[in-house]
Structures are given as structure tokens and as C-alpha cells.
Design a protein around this nucleic acid. Structure first.
Lengths: 237, 237
DNA sequence: ACATAAGGATCGTTGAACAATTCGACAAGA
DNA sequence: TCTTGTCGAATTGTTCAACGATCCTTATGT
């Protein structure tokens, strides 16, 4: 039997190799994961506001799942930092403090900073270019929500330069947390507009293979973004 | 009530500030979390071997908790990367591939690399010094298991230089995953010994405030550690 | 005004139940 | 001999009802 496994594993160039690649699609999701997906969307899109309590009974009822299954979904989102689980009190949509925002940007400086110091491949650059173009197009259309999502794609694409699935995942969660905060920006244009051109500039520095300048430029970029956020955010507290 | 909170928060230098720090310890834990703690220990110490299936019924029975509670614990550890949850097949102790090991070291280079480029405070240096001294003492005593734990504390202390709770947590999980792999090293002395003196050297570079050299030294350090691991690991696959 | 006690609501956990899925064994067929 | 189909045991996925524990609010008394 071991021989059989080795045979398949070694036959990386067999016609079966393609199928192997699709195996991830096949892993069906449990009910709990699907529930988590729904709630994640609701939270990041602002349907559930930060601080709001999510009643187990009410939501389990509304979604037609049992409390146990819903609790599994809550655990998932709690671990992602979107929900705050307080013993015997329930789960609440996470409220990020100003310190949390600062911390998120510290992490971004580390992870994205390391990313821009790497030599991007042609394919990686193409993805980044696409995100920049999408943001510019959305800005031209006055679609500031679209600018926001394109901007997120831009930074995710930056992180992929690290070639690390785990850092990609960390960034994914980090951006989900940040979306909790973005909702406090009442004027999305003022928040997003300045960064469209800076995305383009950063891309040019990458294309010109000037990593140190790119890193310095990114640092200033993130500093400004953080300040914009914290200023709109601090008065709330 | 908000006034009360602000009062306490602002009084960072009051005699109560110390107590504030212990608050995290006080947050009682649910049964599921305590179960997760137990299983985490068992997994990282090698009691459960990678690949082994963890039967819900058997473990729930042995620990005297219900299946539902145990499943919540499984979820927690699954999210930490220690367990592998396969739908309808159960949970297994994670088996890390050589690619996983490489990825873990990529993350370490990014996070620890950023850390050693920062100016450590006196207090931070003291913690690092202590970890180095502990490793040296354990090595002198031929206690290679002790060297391993001191070494882990050393690297955790390095990461705290980033001043980011989230990066600290990321590192904590990363090291837990790495411990899954350390068990393949049959000769702990050969694996740990070379790094005792290198820890000391890295500490000296930090004390001398030479961040670039420290970063370069750390890169070489991590490269060697990774190679040692992968070489002992690859034959298994 | 303040401390205390009572009550309701919600969470934490359990145990049992049933459906869905996996896996191994065994038989039938090429 | 190898492949394929089928069956049944074992395990997981999910639900449900129940009860104690905990928190929050309100009422009560001093």
C-alpha cells in the first residue's frame, strides 16, 4: 500500500496531477463554517455594529441552526478577532481601541515592509498593477467603496511578495479587523483619495527595483493612513 | 460609569496599575479552553504524535467532558494550526510538510528581523539577557530540553521588541507549530548546542546598538536552523 | 443615597438522539 | 489477479431539551 502512495506522489507529471490541484475545492464546508462566512460578511460590511451583542438564541433561530453549531461559528470569528467572547455574557462585535489600530499598523509596517523589499516576479507585479488600475478606475467613477476594496487588494498583493501563505493569512485577518474601523470614516473619499496616486507611485518604485525607497515610501504611507484613522477615531472615545 | 473607567485607565501610575496587569490571569476560563490547554500541552510535548487521530468519544470520555465541549476545544486548536480537522473524518495532530517548515522560517525572518532592527529598552534587554543566561546554564547542565525552552523564550523576547501584542501572539502560535517538528530531532544536543553561543552573540550586537549587523546575523542564524531541521525532516517524507 | 436581595434572561455544559459520511470487508465480475 | 459494487460497523455532524451558573436589572429595606 505504501508503494501505491509513493507511486502516485512521484507521478507529479501524470495526468492525475491536475486533479490533485482541485482537491482543495472538494473539501466541503461544515454548517458552522458557512454560518461563520455569513456572519463575517455581516460584521465587516457593518450590518452588525461594533459593540453590538449577538444573541445566540436569536441568531441561531434566524439562521435555522442549533445553538451548538452557532457557537462553533462564534469561536471561529472570535479567533479572527472580529468577535469578542466574554464568558457568561455572550459575544459582541469587537470594538477596536486606538491602541488596537496602532498595533494593526505596526504589524502592517513589519509585514508589508518586508514585502516591498523583495524582488517581485512578473506575475506578481501584474496582480499589483491590476489592483492599482482598478483603484484608479473606481476613483474616476467616484466609486469610493470600490476604491476601498481595490486598495485592500493592492495591499494583499503586496504581501504575497513574501511568498508566505501564513503571512497572507495574517494579512487577511488583519484587514478584516481594519474594516471594523473603516466604518467610522464618514467621508470615504477623503480617506481613500490620497492613496490612489500613492499606490501608483509605490508600484513604480517596485517596477524600478528600488526596494529601499519603496520601503521608506510605504512607511510614510502607513504613517499617514494611521493618523487619518486615529484622528477620526479618537473623538469617539 | 464611563467616568469610572476613564479614571482607572488614566491612573497608570497609581498603586492599582500593578493589579491591572494581572487582570488577564483573572479572566476565568471556560471548560472548553481548559480542555484546549490540556490538549495543547499534550500535543506540543509529543504525547500525541503527528498524524494521530484524536477520537472524540475516547477523549471526551477520558477527560470527563461532553463531546460538544471537546469539539469547541478542537476548534480552538485547529485554528492554532496544531490540529487538522477533516470533515467527517475527525481531528488529527497536524503533520507539517517541509514546505510548512520553510514557511514558518520565512515568517520568523520577517518578524524577528524587524524586531532586532529596533532599539531595545533596558527592561527588554534584561529579559533577553535572562533567556540567554538560562540557555547557557541549561547547556552546562546537559539539560538540552531546558536549552530548548530557554531558546524559545529568547526568541519570544526578541519579538517583543516590536512592541506589538499581535506579533507576540503570532510568534506564540508559530513556535507552538514548530514544536510539532522539533520532535523529529533525535539528537537535541546537536540541534540546540550551536545556537547557545549564537544567542549570546546576537545579544551583544543588540547591546552594542548595531541593528544591521544583528539583522544579518539573525538571518544566517535562521537559515542554519532551518536547514538543520529540514535535513532531519526530509527523509521522513 | 446606598447596600442587599430577588428575579429574569442568557450563557455554559451536558446527554441523548438521529442523519450523514467514512472505511474496511467481502462478494461478484472481467 | 485486479477491479468494481455493496453492505454494515464505526465515527462524525448536527440538533434538541434540559439544568445549573452567571450576569444584569429591579425592587426592597435601611
Amino acid at each position: 500500500m505504501d508503494d501505491f502512495l509513493l507511486t502516485v506522489d512521484d507521478a507529479a507529471d501524470s495526468p492525475l496531477a491536475d486533479l490533485e490541484h482541485d482537491r482543495s475545492r472538494l473539501g466541503r464546508t461544515s454548517t458552522a463554517e458557512r454560518v461563520a462566512d455569513i456572519l463575517r460578511d455581516r460584521v465587516t460590511e457593518g450590518f452588525f455594529e461594533p459593540g453590538q451583542r449577538l444573541s445566540e438564541e436569536a441568531i441561531a433561530d434566524a439562521l435555522g441552526v442549533s445553538r451548538n453549531t452557532l457557537r462553533e461559528a462564534f469561536r471561529l470569528l472570535g479567533h479572527e478577532g472580529l468577535l469578542d467572547h466574554r464568558l457568561n455574557r455572550g459575544v459582541f462585535v469587537r470594538i477596536l481601541s486606538a491602541q488596537d489600530v496602532a498595533d494593526l499598523y505596526r504589524v502592517r509596517r513589519v509585514i508589508e515592509g518586508a514585502a516591498v523589499r523583495r524582488r517581485p516576479s512578473g506575475q506578481e507585479l501584474a496582480v499589483i498593477r491590476q489592483a492599482v488600475a482598478d483603484a484608479e478606475r473606481a476613483a474616476a467613477d467616484d466609486d469610493w467603496r470600490g476604491v476601498g476594496t481595490a486598495n485592500i487588494r493592492f495591499h494583499q498583493a503586496l504581501v504575497t511578495l513574501n511568498q508566505s501563505p501564513r503571512l497572507d493569512e495574517t494579512m487577511r485577518q488583519l484587514l478584516a479587523e481594519l474594516r471594523l474601523v473603516f466604518h467610522v470614516m464618514k467621508n470615504p473619499r477623503a480617506f481613500h483619495e490620497p492613496f490612489v496616486t500613492r499606490n501608483r507611485k509605490l508600484l513604480e518604485l517596485l517596477e524600478a527595483d528600488r526596494p529601499d525607497e519603496a520601503a521608506a515610501f510605504l512607511d510614510a504611507y502607513l504613517d499617514d493612513a494611521e493618523q487619518l484613522l486615529v484622528r477620526a477615531y479618537a473623538p469617539n472615545r
